[in-house]
Design a protein around this nucleic acid. Structure first.
Length: 776
RNA sequence: UGGGGCGUCGUCAAGUGGUAAGACACCAGGUUUUGAUCCUGGCAUUCGCAGGUUCGAAUCCUGCCGCCCCAGCCA
């Protein structure tokens, strides 16, 4: 794999998403001694796909960007599904993508002994027990999302009994499913995952690495956090569906014998990748292979890494794609077009242009004698790719062109060949179609053309124009080849959305044709070892490379990596017009839910608060939070204006408090009242009030003193502010013009700048008034 | 209906009280011996909806609506 320095695609960009923010913050705070250790933790039970590529780029990319390291760890805790074939293929795929884990290759199974000891310790400390209920009983006693579960009858076994049973479990004294080890969680927890989570189960099955050494295996929720902590991982990044598991993750890290852990890792989640017109679940991919809808896991139609590699996609393109997709927590599905575009962008500067006719239509050049061959020079690169190199292309009496480049009755704007029309054969000559030969079935068998010898190379001395330029190959000298024209695996954007996803397969996801390729390209392909760096752009067709498995020097087989973009022939997928979108937005009139009624007691309380002067809406909010209400009443009793106090309590206090409970703040209602006074006297702006409140709740103090300390007392004198505003406008004439030209959004810019110019003290109301006056 | 998440352009996605980034797609021009590439320009008066706070709200408050995840001895 050669990374071309000329391509921006290979540049390692510092990520800017929320995970990068978290890591940067941790690093700045000196957490984990500034270390950043991530991990990519696949279970070796299937092939990696492009969704994993996103995870891999994220895990390794983040570590790289922050000077840390990323481990490759196989999460092999379920012996029945896992095998060495997958650990081999996964390593190959990660490496192919361009990432290196150095010596940090781990297997969960290597930690089994330590995990067992940690589990024993949990039992000894009464935090885990052996449950001997049946699977069904465990399930039903877990309760439902709306109902609490019930305790297992075995939950209160003695430590000694638990220990003895757990050891016997390990010793192989029991059959599958007879006993499990469970943590003592909370059977009434709202998070179902915390209802006495299972830690170990019995599986009398050989493990791909441990053989018959174990017959009990740890569950994901127990094993995963331990693997992380045992390896020294700091940031454990996974996908959204594990959000519910984070509580157990933290529980395990917090409750296990601390002396054994290298780090106290934290789990973070991001949205997994979805792409239109394909599927990403292992289950579905497996079905495609097992039911022979594709040839294998590395079938070029598969979204697997192996499939993409065999198709001819370069890892640079995959990484570029992942970068373009971004990273966030919103479930989303990206356009299939984005992947295609990334592949094209990667190959555009990498793939030399050659000619290959994929669906040959014979053309006889009437005025070129049989046996005569004109060798023409053809550049490998178009004018805007800064690379050089060319080859010789033979032009002879018998040629082939693309069947779809000829139309007996040309449609409007046809820029190809038709009866009587003249076109250029790329790097060759102008040819004119003089006759059409048809078979008995009416099918066109051959075109009779004449060529203009003076147009050698493709330029006419008289400067005349032609319809268009066609690719072509000499039938006499060209080399027959097989072309595998891969297309989208599925015919609909969301396979399986209504029913069986297999029904949505695109029947034309592979079309095999027999084509003819120009000799120079055939030679290059034949001389390159299988899977070597040889990718072409077949002009006007797309990007291709020899299939690494099936192509041979004698019988070349080319895979279409991706087609060229085309604004012809495809009825351009319609994007809803703006007008339609607007209508849609308006029609999507939402059901507006009713505001729930307050209970009679709360309503009475609200009425009481309203009686004290709180606006109705505020009163209702205050009423439903007794502590908040007490802040309001306290402030009013301390002399605050009711409206100001309620507004501050409702709109600001809770946020300012953050995690701190409202009854544990560093200040008292009387301080709030003082702040209200400042606000009402217009001595500070609302913004200044917020700043003071933030300090008040955390550190306490006097509002008035803080105002002075923070320099927040307002400057409201227009005479003072006017020159500043005038200067601001003078300094930003362009923006002033834009504003007057209708760009009213700029007003915020002016206000912001003006306030900044006064060190935050300018009274925004006065500034606004001045702006209104001066800007018109 | 319990809990946990998430709603910003057709699709991704920045933004966390002061001018709604960027990319892909799309549209319009230009260059072109690939209907490709490349270049130029356009493309959210508005951030799920409704109220409220504020001089100023995508960002704060309240309520509602919608989507995803959780009841494997899978990961």
């Amino acid at each position: 794999m050669s990374d071309s320095p000329s391509l921006p695609l290979t540049a390692i960009e510092k990520p800017t998403h929320f995970l990068a923010d978290i890591i940067a913050t941790d690093q700045a705070a000196g957490r984990y001694e500034g270390q950043v250790v991530t991990r990519f933790p696949p279970e070796p039970n299937g092939y990696l796909h492009i969704g994993h590529a996103k995870a891999i780029c994220t895990d390794f990319g983040l570590a790289q960007a922050f000077g840390g390291r990323c481990h490759l760890r196989f999460d092999d805790t379920n012996p029945e599904k896992e095998s060495d074939e997958y650990v081999r293929s996964i390593q190959e795929d990660v490496r192919w993508l361009g990432f290196d884990w150095g010596e940090h290759l781990y297997f969960a199974s290597d930690f089994f002994e330590t995990m067992f000891e940690l589990a024993i310790d949990l039992v000894e400390r009464g935090l885990a027990y052996v449950d001997s209920q049946s699977g069904d009983d465990i399930r039903s006693s877990r309760g439902t999302v709306t109902q609490a579960g019930t305790h297992s009858p075995f939950r209160d076994r003695t430590v000694a009994e638990n220990l003895q049973l757990f050891h016997k479990m390990r010793a192989g004294d029991f059959g599958d499913g007879t006993h499990v080890l469970r943590a003592k969680g909370d059977m009434a927890a709202a998070n179902m995952k915390m209802r006495d989570p299972l830690l170990y189960r019995i599986r009398n099955a050989p493990h791909h690495r441990q053989g018959d050494k174990w017959c009990i295996y740890p569950m994901y929720d127990f094993a995963h956090p331990l693997e992380d902590a045992l390896e020294g991982v700091t940031h454990s990044i996974c996908t959204l569906e594990f959000e519910n598991n984070r509580d157990i993750y933290d529980w395990v890290i917090a409750n296990v014998d601390q002396s054994r852990l290298k780090t106290q890792p934290k789990q973070y989640e991001f949205a997994r990748l979805n792409i239109g017109y394909t599927v990403m679940s292992k289950r579905m991919l497996r079905q495609l292979v097992e039911k022979d809808h594709v040839a294998s896991w590395d079938d070029p139609r598969m979204p697997t890494i192996a499939g993409m590699r065999r198709r001819g996609i370069r890892p640079q393109a995959v990484r570029h794609f992942v970068n373009r997709v971004g990273l966030a927590k919103a479930n989303s599905q990206v356009d299939a077009e984005l992947l295609d575009g990334s592949i094209r962008e990667d190959l555009n500067f990498e793939a030399p242009r050659v000619m290959c006719v994929t669906d040959p239509l014979p053309v006889e050049i009437r005025n070129l004698p049989e046996g005569q061959v004109e060798w023409l020079e053809a550049s490998y690169w178009p004018h805007d790719v800064p690379k050089t190199g060319s080859r010789q292309v033979p032009f002879s009496r018998n040629l082939v062109i693309e069947r779809e480049d000829f139309a007996e009755v040309p449609p409007k704007k046809w820029r190809r060949l038709s009866p009587g029309a003249e076109v250029r054969l790329r790097y060759g000559f102008f040819v004119r179609c003089e006759d059409v030969i048809k078979g008995p079935d009416g099918r066109i068998e051959k075109l009779i053309c004449s060529y203009d010898p003076t147009t050698r190379g493709g330029d006419s001395p008289d400067g005349r124009k032609v319809q268009g330029t066609l690719h072509w190959v000499s039938a006499d000298k060209g080399v027959p080849c097989e072309l595998r024209m891969y297309d989208r695996l599925f015919g609909v954007e969301n396979p399986g959305a209504d029913g069986d996803f297999l029904q949505d397969l695109n029947p034309n996801n592979l079309k095999v044709t027999q084509g003819i390729i120009e000799p120079a390209a055939a030679k290059t392909a034949a001389e390159t070892p299988a899977g070597g760096e040889v990718r072409f752009q077949f002009e006007r067709q797309g990007y291709f490379w020899p299939d690494p498995v099936d192509s041979t020097g004698d019988a070349p087989v080319f895979n279409r990596i991706v087609g060229l973009k085309s604004s012809w022939g495809k009825p351009a997928l319609k994007t809803p017009s703006k007008a339609q979108t607007k209508t849609k937005a308006k029609t999507k009139a939402q059901k507006v839910g009713k505001r729930p009624e307050l209970s009679p007691e709360l309503a009475a309380f609200a009425a009481e608060l309203q009686g004290m002067g709180a606006p109705r809406a505020d009163a209702e909010v205050l009423a439903s939070d007794a502590t908040l209400a007490s802040w309001f009443t306290g402030a009013v009793q301390a002399g605050a204006k009711a409206k100001t106090a309620s507004s501050l309590a409702v709109n600001e206090l809770r946020r300012a408090a953050g995690e701190t409970p409202l009854d544990q703040l560093a200040c008292a209602p009387v301080d709030l009242a003082e702040l209200c006074g400042l606000l009402d006297a217009q001595r500070i702006s609302s913004k200044g009030g917020k700043k003071i409140l933030a300090v008040l709740v955390e550190k306490g103090g006097s509002a008035q003193a803080l105002m002075a300390e923070l320099g927040l007392e307002q400057i409201s004198d227009p005479a003072v502010l006017r020159p500043m505003v005038e200067k601001l406008l003078a300094d930003n004439q362009a923006n002033v013009d834009a504003y007057r030209g209708g760009q009213k959004g700029l007003r915020g810019f002016f206000v912001g700048q003006a306030i900044r110019a006064t060190g935050g003290k300018g009274d925004p109301k006065v500034v606004q008034a001045l702006l209104t006056e001066l800007l018109g």
